[in-house]
Design a protein around this nucleic acid. Structure first.
Lengths: 243, 243
DNA sequence: TATAGTTGTCTATATCAATAGACATTTAAA
DNA sequence: TTTAAATGTCTATTGATATAGACAACTATA
């Protein structure tokens, strides 16, 4: 864990240190002992006061990642990072596969609206044409992984919200609505700081990072069937692109 | 630009606001006027004091993104975000294409070392086998875009650093060393906060976000020829995966 | 049962971050 | 040439962040 922390950046030292420790845990740096190094050691390592390290550890404990035990040390409670393969056949649920015991997809809200310029471009329709919009959250083992906004052409998939709420799967919902197969056409990936709404929806540590994907799925004729903007908790996932 | 700003998160309000304004500029939110809204308007929008907005704008001015002019307003100076297609034929230089006038690739340092477990797995060699390691920075129009650590099997590409320094291109260097073509095998993408070294190398605003790719390139027989970890300034790039 | 090593708590102090208000300075337009 | 609208500068105050040191409390082990 090389590299010191930075001062006067607008990001508090305890948060930088919390981020670094979370990263190190997820990378398996402390697997031998199953414990985070002692506070005094970390303080020396990062070049800060022990109290600052304690603030960082308190934040990680709040997230449920570590548990400090007086007299013993700070135990690692959880260290998962889910992997999402992004391919022509990208599917959320089966993509996670055996990485979690239970996957759930919740429909937060839905509405019918007119496509704005962005959505129209994605779905290759004219701006103003009717689309169905769904806000969803997906969880792995009860832990929120991503929230997404998805748009479908209303003419073809008007029933999507009802079916999705029941099946909790885009793939199954498409199947019931007469689309037996679909493929991922494009995926754009960016990263930003989470805003308040996403922090709440994803149960994130405030100030966390989001990985954002904008994706288009098409039927086998290449006609767009879904445009989606998904926001992933960056410290819980990684993407893999296999070519 | 919905969503309020969060307090007591370890991320200063002025930094959150700076990030949000930078994002909005890059998304073209202020293209009509070419200016950021007045400080008083932003303060109301974000629910903070005008002085806090001023700190955010000062940070953006420091980055060269905006320029405040007394009596007129705050002018947008720059709003680019480079797009990197990630495909079987991902190449850095040609991928940027016409998005920048000038691309440069600088070799910071290089060394010959023994492959650790991570590198060995990527290159499908045994840990301990000799590899050439290169640290590079890539710039578009003089602006740093990414820094990367790349490893090559020493037996086959021992001369890589010299050739790369001269050609400033992995593709050209491979060609000179007898490899006329190669393909991208896998790409992993994650996001973290930048550490001090990367902040310096990429001339980043402190506390900025990095997009990290771990990629393996192979020759046409599928034998790995390069394993690379690249760190991109998240507010200057986006990735596109076309399937 | 000591003892070393660890986390927990307390007090105190200095600096950064944010708010609040007042007023100066500059620009562009009426 | 006013005037409105915008940024620039100053003072003052409050709360969050970080450092410093001392000591208490707990755990595992020699």
């Amino acid at each position: 864990m090389a590299g010191q922390v930075q001062r006067q950046t607008g990001v508090a030292l305890w948060r930088q240190i919390a981020d670094r420790i979370r990263q190190a845990i997820s990378a398996g740096a402390y697997d031998e002992t199953g414990m985070v190094p002692p506070e005094t050691v970390l303080a020396l390592q990062f070049g800060v006061n022990r109290h600052t390290v304690r603030s960082a550890i308190a934040a990680l404990a709040q997230e449920g990642i570590v548990r400090a035990v007086q007299g013993r040390g700070t135990l690692i409670e959880r260290k998962e990072r889910l992997n999402f393969p992004i391919t022509k056949r990208t599917r959320f649920t089966s993509g996670i596969g055996e990485q979690a015991r239970e996957m759930r997809a919740l429909l937060l809200s839905h509405s019918e609206e007119k496509a704005d310029a962005d959505v129209a471009r994605g779905l290759k329709i004219r701006p103003g044409e009717p689309v169905v919009r769904m806000e969803t959250v997906r969880k792995a083992d009860g832990r929120p992984v991503s929230c997404a906004t998805a748009w479908f052409p209303a003419a073809r998939f008007g029933g999507m919200p009802d079916v999705y709420k029941r099946t909790e799967s885009i793939t199954k919902a498409f199947a019931e609505l007469g689309l037996s197969d679909y493929v991922r056409s494009t995926t754009e990936i960016t990263a930003v700081h989470a805003d308040e709404a996403d922090t709440a929806a994803l149960e994130l540590a405030p100030g966390a990072i989001l990985l954002i994907t904008k994706a288009v799925n098409t039927d086998l004729e290449g006609v767009p069937v879904q445009y989606a903007i998904s926001r992933f908790a960056a410290d819980r996932v990684q993407f893999t692109i296999e070519n």
